[in-house]
Every structure is written in C-alpha cells, then in structure tokens.
Amino acid sequence: MAQMNLLQAINNALDIAMAENDSALCFGEDVGHFGGVFRATSGLQEKYGKARCFNTPLVEQGIIGFANGLAAQGSTPIAEIQFADYIFPAFDQIVNEAAKFRYRSGNEFDVGKLTIRSPYGGGIAGGLYHSQSPEAYFAHTPGLKIVVPRNPYQAKGLLLASIRDDNPVIFFEPKRLYRASTGEVPEEDYQLPLGKAEVVKQGSDITLLAWGAQMEIIEKAAEMADNDGISCEIIDLRSILPWDVETIAASVMKTGRLVISQEAPLTAGFASEIAATIQSECFLHLESPIARVCGMDTPYPLALEKEYVSDHLKTYEAIKNSLNY
C-alpha cells in the first residue's frame, strides 16, 4: 500500500492501463508533456511516447470524435475533457455517437473501449464554468455508463474497471478532492465493480445517499446527526448509469427514510430519478418523503458559492426534517 492522493491514484491507474495494453492511448488538451492541467497524465508521455499520450487541438468534439473512431477501430482511447463544463461541444459525439454506436449497427461495430475522463464539480472558487456537475444530462442517454469515485482507492479501482469495460464510460473526477483526498492505495492492479453502490457505513434510522465529492458532505452531516442520536446509513452510489437500485432500495426498506445529496441543481438532477424509483420500490416502507439536498436552480455562482452549495448543514437539516416529519 502507498499513500496517494486522488490524482496520483488516477495517474497510477492510467499507467497500469497503458502498460498492459499497447493500444491504450491518453489524449486531450495539455495532456501530453505537460501532464494535463491537473497533472493526471504526468509522466505518461515520457514513458509511453508521444504517439500514445498526446496533446490535442482545442476542440472537444474533435477529441471525442477522434476517440470514437479509435475505439471503433479497436484501440483503447482514454480521452480527457479538461473540465466537465467544456464537455458540451462533444455532446453530440457522446450522446448521438458513442452511446448509440453498438445499437444502431446491430452490434456490427461498437465503441466499448472508450473511456472519457473529466474533472467535475465545485468548491474550488471556479465560478460558472469550472464547477458544473453535468452527470444528469448523460444519465438520460441509454448506452453510456457513468462513474464517479469518492476517494483515491475508489478512483483507481473504478477507473481501471471503466477502461476495461466493454461499453463507453464517462468517468467524472471530483476535482475538489484531487489533492485534498489522500489515502492508502494498493500499488498493484485491482478493479472495483461498475453499477454497484457501496454501503460505506451501516445505520438504522435513515439512509444518506451521494456520490463523488458529495460523499464527504453527507459523512460530515451524519456525524452531526450521530451526536443527536440519529443512526445514519451512508451509501456511495459510485455508478450513476446503470445505477444500483437494489442496494438503495434494500437500505431504504430497512431505514424507511432517504436523503439524497448532489452538487448539481435540484430540477431534473439525478437525485430526482433516484427519488422517483425508490418511492416506487419502497412506497409502503417510507416514513417520510424522500429529500433531495442539491445545488440551487441557478448557474454555479462565484462569490456566493458557500450559500449555493448543498453543504453538510443543509444535509443535516434535511436529516432532522425527515426524522421529525
């Protein structure tokens, strides 16, 4: 085991993927010698050469179009979109192309080897365009897998699983935690399952559900609730699409209450999808309405970031409201 931060864990996963597979390529804006603006691809060009780890022109639709072509050809492209806020020029290549490649061809062709990595989320004074959490847009698209890790150990295992999975995967990395989150990470190869949530802490009174950087928010809220004698079950969803209905439903059947916390705005966020499914699966077990603690329905602000975000205090209040319903 080594101590790694989340960036080092990602870099380590990419290193393993490129070492084992000559057709694995890492590319994106500033990804080459510079190692990416966050340094996720540091050292990879030196190790694997310019043909396999390289800078691309500033054209997100080109990056993902190029990656789709590579994946269809049989290579293993790992494309980086510098910030999730800038993924939208590539929306067509992701939603109309990558996601539908296998289906529309009757499995004559596929881009299952494609992985798209992108830093997402706020809390870094990044304002409107360095803070967004766009997972819900993609969750509405059959054919994609969406994965969000919460810490370095999860990041390495989930990224390796994403790269090796035979479906296009969008891997959203919580950039607020890139250097802030450190932990023990095995240096050897391992994978964590896609499509499976993880019960991080058992509890009996209420289920708290989140993913990515929001996990530490609900953990903090759970500590506050614990001081009030409330026992919280904490679950990391890990995969947004397909998502693990079974684990969440089983927990809610037990606790009778659910608070979902997400960074993205409230309306039509992924928390809404979870709430709809869980009320249908667990209707007679629910003791109170499912609560969504989310960003506000505004663009991501700068000066008023603290006010805007779904922080631990808002989550704590939602827990108490649920218990006192």
Partner: peptide
C-alpha cells in the same frame, strides 16, 4: 473526426 481517429 471519427475517421481521423480510426485512421490514427
């Protein structure tokens, strides 16, 4: 752009 990637 896919053709560019395929050819690469």
């Amino acid at each position: 752009p896919q053709a560019a990637g395929y050819a690469y």
